[in-house]
Structures are given as C-alpha cells and as structure tokens.
Simulated scan of single mutants.
Amino acid sequence: MSTNSTKLAAGVAAMIAGALVSTAASAQDKPAMEKCYGVSLAGKNDCKAGAGTSCAGTSKTDYQGNAWKLVKAGTCTKIKTPKGPGSLTPKA
C-alpha cells in the first residue's frame, strides 16, 4: 500500500470513529424520561387516555388521571396540579 493510500485510509478511519463518538455522546446527553400521569392539559397528553381513544392528544379533560406526558425522570411526583401531584401510575 502506498503512503498516500495509508494516509487516506487512516483519515477515513478517524472520521468514522469521530462520527461514532459523536453519536454516542448525543445519546447520552438526552435525559432519562418517565411517564407522568395526571399532569397534561386536555388534548396535550402523549398517550393513554382511556377506552376508545387512539393515543396522543386524545385526553378530554385537564389533568386526566389515565393520560400521561413524558417528563424528565425524577420530576413527575414534584409536578403540582389543581388535582394534586403527578403520579407514576394511572390515577382514578
């Protein structure tokens, strides 16, 4: 292999390695998330709004107990609403 080919191969390998490190770093930068029930406004839930609903955006009332939003892990039960704090499990 010529010197130029070796340099080119080393450069390509370095670019690939850099891209892999960058991708891994961005995945680590995202905070862990958890489902938080009873904190979304009507029509603003991420999913699970009861029987007969398809999913996101289908809650009928503010702070509906069986509708959830994704929130940063560890913050759900600290969220205060007029109907009480958020819950990690569906509320009645």
Rank of each mutant, 00 (worst) to 15 (best):
M1R: 10
T3N: 09
T3I: 14
T3K: 03
N4Y: 12
N4F: 10
S5V: 06
S5K: 11
S5P: 12
T6S: 10
K7W: 13
L8G: 08
A9Y: 06
A10T: 06
A13T: 05
M15N: 09
G18Q: 00
A19T: 08
V21Y: 01
V21L: 12
S22V: 15
T23R: 15
A24G: 14
A24P: 08
A24R: 12
A27V: 08
A27R: 14
Q28W: 12
Q28G: 12
K30M: 00
P31Y: 04
P31I: 00
A32S: 05
A32E: 13
E34L: 01
E34F: 08
E34N: 02
K35M: 11
K35L: 03
C36G: 10
Y37M: 02
G38C: 02
V39S: 00
L41Q: 09
A42F: 06
A42K: 03
G43Y: 03
K44I: 10
N45R: 01
N45W: 07
D46P: 02
D46T: 15
C47E: 14
C47T: 11
A49H: 04
A49T: 04
A49K: 01
G50P: 05
A51K: 11
G52F: 13
G52P: 09
T53G: 01
S54M: 14
C55L: 09
A56N: 15
T58G: 10
T58C: 15
S59N: 15
S59Y: 04
S59V: 06
S59E: 09
K60V: 15
K60N: 14
T61V: 15
T61P: 12
Y63A: 03
Y63I: 09
G65P: 07
G65E: 05
G65K: 04
A67W: 08
A67H: 01
A67Q: 01
A67G: 04
A67M: 08
W68T: 02
W68Y: 15
K69W: 05
K69H: 11
L70D: 12
K72S: 02
K72C: 02
K72D: 00
A73F: 09
G74D: 01
G74T: 03
T75N: 10
T75W: 02
T75H: 00
K78F: 12
I79T: 07
I79P: 02
K80V: 00
K80R: 13
T81N: 13
T81S: 07
T81C: 06
P82V: 04
P82R: 06
P82H: 06
K83Y: 14
K83E: 13
P85L: 11
P85T: 15
P85N: 15
P85F: 13
G86H: 03
S87T: 01
S87I: 02
L88Y: 06
K91L: 14
